[in-house]
């Protein structure tokens, strides 16, 4: 009996070890080595064939200079902070846009709900890259949005949207909106309607009962949605590089530059390790809130 239980646990854990822990250890190892022009472009290179000498040699050659290097140039901190800022702002916008949609879906009649969920999920059927590419077409100077606004007479000069931070925000909010809507919808759908009736009986008007009953009860959904948006957006690379301008500084693009332009795999790995550490903070907070939620239930 016990054996079977462990076997069941073993499968997911071995996945975690193979797909997360092992790659992470490789990245950490790389971040502690030196860059050279060779194949692969870093050293020391752990050679097990040399036996114990190889291992001691490997450890004596390790140093933290790549991490020290990151503290010497403020570019990296500015890029981390800028990524955090972009992630925070887009999370708030996504929440403001996503909550009303989720609320509307949860309050729709039963026959409409599957269709509405379908409409939220539908964009996933098209490649993410193609959807971002179409935003390039929509936001460009000669693009659909400018043409439409010109036609309406709202503007008389085409707006510069593409290659600005505004375009990055639009792209991020568009892409991550379903990740906000679905968890909020899931928590709103479970909402016990009799609680709202009780609030009404106790003298709440609709606005008051929304803020005092609906929002607190959907808190778990809001938190889950915010983390599902915030965490991946920090490391986002595709959206800023396609829609952003040269002044859109995100850690994903810095990482690309270290890896490809400088061929400095060790520094690139150091940037990635620190990014992971930064991400651990919200992830731990997320788990705490999940745990509290479970304890409350």
């Amino acid at each position: 009996m016990n054996f079977r239980k462990y076997l069941f646990i073993l499968i997911p854990y071995s996945w975690l070890v193979a797909l997360f822990l092992v790659p992470f250890i490789i990245v950490v190892k790389m971040s502690l080595s030196d860059g050279v022009m060779a194949i692969p472009p870093y050293t020391p290179y752990l050679t097990l064939t040399e036996g114990w000498a190889g291992i001691t040699n490997f450890f004596t050659n390790l140093d933290f200079e790549n991490f020290i290097f990151l503290t010497e140039d403020n570019l990296y901190w500015i890029a981390y902070l800028s990524s955090l800022k972009i992630a925070a702002i887009s999370t708030v916008i996504t929440l403001l846009v996503g909550y009303p949609i989720a609320y509307g879906m949860a309050n729709a009649s039963n026959e409409w709900r599957p269709t509405l969920i379908m409409l939220v999920i539908l964009p996933f059927w098209t490649s993410f890259l193609i959807r971002i590419y179409s935003w390039m077409g929509i936001l460009s100077q000669e693009g659909f949005l400018n043409q439409f606004l010109l036609w309406l007479g709202i503007i008389d000069q085409p707006l510069t949207l593409l290659n600005t931070n505004i375009a990055v925000y639009i792209g991020i909010v568009y892409t991550y909106l379903p990740f906000m809507i679905l968890p909020i919808y899931a928590s709103l759908e479970k909402l016990d309607l009799s609680l709202l009736e009780a609030a009404k009986d106790l003298g709440c008007n609709r606005t008051q009962s929304f803020w005092l009953v609906t929002v607190p009860l959907s808190k778990a959904g809001i938190i889950a949605g915010c983390f599902l948006v915030f965490i991946p957006v920090i490391g986002e690379f595709v959206i800023p590089s396609l829609l952003g301008g040269a002044d859109t500084l995100m850690i994903g693009t810095i990482l690309w530059q270290e890896f490809f332009a400088n061929r400095d795999w060790p520094v690139a790995s150091a940037v990635a390790v620190i990014l992971l550490l930064i991400l651990m903070v919200p992830i731990i907070l997320f788990q705490r809130s999940e745990q509290k939620q479970r304890e409350a239930e």
Partner: peptide
């Protein structure tokens, strides 16, 4: 740069 990174990775 992209090509070179691939070549250096082996």
């Amino acid at each position: 740069e992209l090509l070179e990174t691939k070549l250096l990775a082996g």
